[in-house]
Simulated assay, not measured.
Amino acid sequence: MIDRWGRGPLAAVVGVPALLVLALLVGAALRYDAPAPTRRAAPPPTATAAPAEDETVPPAAPAPAGLPVIDYDPAPAGFPADPRPLDVTPLTEGLTPTRHIAAYDAPGGRPRALLAPTINGVELTMPVVERRTGWTAVLLPSASRRLAWLPAGGWTPVALRDQLVVQRRTHRLTWYRHGSPQHTWPVSLGLPGQETPLGRTFILGTTPPPEPVYGGVDVFALGAIPDDLDAVPTGLKGAHIGLHTWQDDDTLGENVTNGCIRLTRTAQQTLLDEVRPGTELVVVDALPAS
């Protein structure tokens, strides 16, 4: 049975069986579980270089009046697909808007929506996935496997040191720092028809647990939303994919959630203490052979 919870500062997180409220918090402590493969980290973040004199920067069209602001509801249509959704190369830089800025569907393309410094009071940090002359692409909040292009100005860079990788085939989540594995844990994932979405997303914020079934540990809300919105139970319409613990570990390694990633209490406490909003999380079927 799906229970209903009231909406709050950010809104809902897909889980079993809940609708949650979003606010920024942290937690503590952990144990090591199993080894994971070491992968090469991406280069450290750098400031966007000024274009050379012979380079042409595609101009940014003015944002028309009435452009929607991206919030916790599903993002407006028209944004391009992430060209490398299953790339597990760590994303080491994010950005935070310092004012309302237009988000475009291509460098010099059409403005589709506005991005604000916060979503319902929670600071918005999005991982950077690509750069072209005078433009920066970020993973989009409130969408799955979509990105937006931003012109220069109106945002500040943020260094990202961590990455979370979920393997659906083995039901494992691994936490990496600067490309090196720190811990890995078993997880429960989405049931058939409501599978945990593949691809790159990021931590949007956290929420305190509203009920004992969440083990008394805060919940991460991700930028991703369910792939099949029609398959989501009525009480979870408009919800995001979540990363959270549960009252027991009986279903770890199984597909039992509405798309959320469920892990142990000690694992969730450690991630709450260690990783910040904006941290990339990528879901793959399996890591590529090294």
Rank of each mutant, 00 (worst) to 15 (best):
W5Q: 15
R7T: 15
A12Q: 12
V13D: 09
V13I: 13
V14Q: 11
L19Q: 14
V21S: 14
L24T: 15
G27K: 02
G27T: 14
A34T: 12
P35L: 09
P35T: 04
T38M: 00
R39L: 07
T48H: 02
E53N: 08
E53A: 11
D54Q: 09
D54E: 09
T56C: 02
T56N: 03
P59N: 05
A60S: 13
A60W: 05
A61M: 06
P64T: 12
G66Y: 10
L67A: 13
D71L: 10
Y72M: 13
Y72C: 11
A77M: 14
P80V: 04
A81T: 15
A81L: 13
L86Q: 15
T89H: 01
L91P: 01
G94K: 01
G94L: 04
L95H: 05
T98C: 05
T98P: 06
H100D: 15
Y104Q: 07
P107G: 06
P111K: 07
R112L: 13
L114D: 08
L114K: 12
L115S: 11
P117V: 08
P117E: 12
G121M: 12
V122N: 14
T125S: 07
M126D: 09
E130H: 13
E130R: 14
E130F: 01
R132A: 13
T133G: 08
T133W: 01
G134E: 08
G134C: 10
A137N: 13
V138D: 08
V138F: 03
L139A: 05
L140W: 02
A143P: 02
S144A: 14
R145H: 10
R146D: 09
A148R: 04
W149K: 08
G153V: 07
G154K: 01
T156M: 10
L164P: 04
V165C: 02
V165L: 02
V166C: 00
H171E: 04
R172M: 00
Y176N: 03
R177C: 00
G179T: 01
H183C: 00
H183W: 09
W185K: 01
V187Y: 04
L189P: 11
G190T: 07
L191C: 09
P192F: 04
P192I: 03
P192H: 10
G193M: 00
Q194E: 12
Q194I: 01
E195I: 01
I203E: 09
L204H: 12
G205V: 07
G205L: 04
P208Q: 05
P208K: 10
E211L: 12
E211I: 11
V213N: 09
V213A: 10
G216R: 07
V217H: 06
D218A: 12
L222Q: 10
G223I: 03
V232W: 04
V232Q: 11
G235I: 09
G235F: 11
K237D: 15
G238W: 02
A239Y: 06
I241V: 14
H244W: 07
H244C: 03
T245C: 02
T245A: 12
Q247M: 13
D250C: 01
D250A: 00
G253M: 05
G253K: 06
V256F: 03
V256I: 14
N258T: 07
G259E: 09
C260Q: 07
T264C: 06
T266D: 12
A267W: 03
Q268K: 09
Q268T: 05
L272S: 01
L272W: 05
D273N: 11
E274W: 11
V275E: 04
V283P: 02
D285N: 14
P288I: 00
P288W: 05
P288A: 05
A289E: 15
